[in-house]
């Protein structure tokens, strides 16, 4: 086993194992270093590439950091008003039922201003996929408290920590929509480690494939970081996320093939 493979021997087309998906554009993403948005974008791009559905996919971007997602995915995209992406997606899917339609929304977008659109799209059982990025904060506007901000968690509008007596409780909207008859697949994943990236990719793939079944809506929550908003390094933020976000937002499937999974 004593060989002298040099880098030049290895770095050849025939030895390629992984490269950025061609469904991603060459644009440099504007996200902060270590932000989970980029990873989530690439997962979606890879699934579109693998399913060979680039020509049949329409994505709807939110308001928030991911507003410019259309600069990074080489697919047709629409940019919605804050919280309204599920309404746009509803019309797109109903007018073009043969297409694959997804929304990509943050927690402020999906769980605060867009709660009505989210719940009703879920309840109507629109045959779309919702990818929900939950970092517990309004990232783009500078780290304000979101509906998902944890109790006692600091943000720029809860500088002494979220006081639930005064500011209300965080909202587990994913568990909430799982209760609705229109959702077919509801899961919570993450993208901070290779293992979770692989799990999330399976979930995203399932969410796209479910659209063919016409049995309802698939929602994939991705618990993610906002290291700038949380004022931590990317690596610290991922650790903080596991220690603090995961107990409140535990990863795993919540509803599979239209059936709630029991907790035990």
């Amino acid at each position: 086993m004593n060989d002298n493979l040099s880098n030049a021997d290895i770095v050849k087309c025939e030895n390629l194992v992984y490269k950025r998906s061609p469904v991603m554009t060459d644009n440099v993403m504007h996200y902060c270093p270590g932000c989970g948005h980029g990873t989530a974008h690439q997962i979606i791009a890879e699934v579109i590439e693998e399913m060979d559905i680039q020509a049949e996919t329409i994505g709807i971007t939110p308001v928030g950091c991911a507003v410019l997602m259309y600069n990074y995915l080489d697919i047709d995209m629409q940019e919605a008003a804050h919280g309204r992406a599920p309404a746009l997606a509803t019309a797109v899917k109903r007018l073009m039922p043969e297409k694959y339609v997804f929304t990509y929304q943050g927690d402020g977008d999906l769980a605060a201003i867009g709660t009505a659109e989210t719940i009703h799209a879920c309840n109507r059982g629109e045959n779309i996929a919702i990818f929900f990025i939950n970092n517990g904060i309004y990232g783009m506007t500078g780290g304000q408290m979101a509906p998902t901000t944890l109790p006692n968690m600091r943000s720029s509008t809860s500088p002494y920590g979220r006081d639930v007596e005064m500011m209300g409780n965080p909202l587990r909207i994913t568990e909430l929509v799982a209760q609705l008859p229109g959702t077919y697949y509801v899961t919570r994943q993450a993208v901070h480690t290779p293992t979770y990236v692989r799990k999330t990719k399976k979930a995203v793939r399932r969410a796209f494939e479910n659209q063919k079944l016409k049995k309802g809506l698939s929602l994939v929550e991705i618990v993610s970081n906002c290291n700038s908003g949380w004022k931590m390094s990317p690596v610290q933020a991922n650790k903080w996320m596991v220690d603090n976000m995961f107990p409140f937002y535990p990863p795993g499937d919540i509803k599979l093939e239209g059936k709630m999974l029991s907790k035990d």
């Binding site: 746009l88 509803t90 797109v92």
Partner: peptide
Amino acid sequence: MIVLQAESEIAAINMVYGGAACGRKV
């Protein structure tokens, strides 16, 4: 032609937005 009763006027106009973005007469 499709017809849908939305959950609010806000949702309805945003459905129009999505449909119009597909080049449809909505």
